[in-house]
């Protein structure tokens, strides 16, 4: 791995380069994001600089630097155990809940390091929402209570709870299915509905960033499609980072892709670029092998 490409060792932020002729062949997704890239140089969005992660003595993630521009979808891809989920959990300070974990580097959120000593971690988590691999609605709460759990748990006042409830469920694409049974238990929903309920719950805090950790791995194709539509819609107003094992999904929903790989040691970021480039013209051979399904 010592001869790998520059993203491995640089501590500068990785900004996917975009040239006019590339933009011209991209889909409507990426052309929308071309505007966002112009403000890349400033402090918007989320940016990791030289991030490492450890679990006790196990070095799980090594020197990852990447920038997630505002209002874009970035897919984190790579084989199991390459540190994608660990990296995702570092982005909203969930990593530290694992006993004996440690990290290094900086994660800039709107230009400020979220690991600085004066930053309140719970405040960061209200602004950077997260949806987990396994749907995890609160078992002791109804559907409605689940959606509004965020503001309640974070002690945020809600002006008009009924409106917020409808808005979040509509944005998560679940309103029509559950509007008549908001008082039913969250666990009474199907797996796909539960996952959209979890998305609605994350939206209730009006986060600026939404992190999704393999949100569709337990869902059937129909539910997956609906969650993907939701993601694309949400990306108009928030930055989204999604971990996925599904290459088709990555190509369908993401504007950028980042490929992680571990050669037995810590996971590293191998390559990050526009999704179209990653799939059609990757710079690294390993990326090409992975996206074409030759390993992992």
């Amino acid at each position: 791995m010592s001869d790998s490409i520059s993203t491995d060792s640089t501590t500068e932020s990785f900004v996917p380069s975009i040239t006019p002729n590339v933009a011209s062949v991209t889909t409507e997704h990426t052309s929308r994001n071309a505007e966002n890239l112009e403000v890349n140089g400033t402090t918007t969005g989320l940016e990791a600089r030289g991030v490492h992660a450890w679990f006790d003595k196990h070095h799980a993630l090594e020197d990852v630097s990447i920038h997630f521009p505002q209002n874009t979808v970035t897919g984190l891809i790579g084989p199991s155990g390459c540190g994608k989920s660990t990296f995702l959990r570092l982005l909203n300070r969930m990593h530290e809940f694992i006993p004996k974990s440690a990290m290094a580097g900086e994660v800039l959120f709107n230009g400020e390091d979220m690991y600085a000593s004066h930053v309140n971690a719970t405040d960061i988590r209200t602004r950077i929402g997260m949806v987990f691999q396994k749907p995890n609605p609160f078992p002791a709460m109804t559907i409605g209570e689940n959606v509004l759990a965020g503001p309640k748990l974070a002690k945020k006042k809600v002006e008009n709870p009924d409106d917020l409830l409808e808005e979040c469920l509509t944005r998560a694409g679940l309103w029509k299915e559950v509007k008549d049974r908001l008082k039913a238990q969250g666990s009474s929903l199907s797996g796909g509905q539960q996952q959209r309920l979890c998305i609605a719950r994350a939206l209730a805090l009006k986060p600026e960033v939404l992190l999704l950790d393999e949100p569709c791995s337990a869902l059937d194709p129909g539910s997956t499609l609906r969650v993907e539509e939701t993601i694309v819609q949400l990306s108009q107003s928030m930055t989204i980072v999604i971990v996925t094992h599904n290459m088709q999904q990555a190509s369908r929903v993401s504007d950028y892709c980042a490929f992680f790989l571990s050669d037995g040691g810590p996971g590293r970021l191998i390559e990050a670029d526009l999704t179209t480039n990653m799939f059609s013209n990757p710079k690294d051979e390993r990326t090409a092998n992975y996206v074409q399904g030759r390993f992992g």
Binding site: M94, T122, F132, K134, N136, P139, G150
Partner: peptide, 10 residues
């Protein structure tokens, strides 16, 4: 996962 969900909501 249940505790994580709550922590992730701040």
């Amino acid at each position: 996962e249940i505790r994580d969900a709550s922590y992730a909501l701040g």
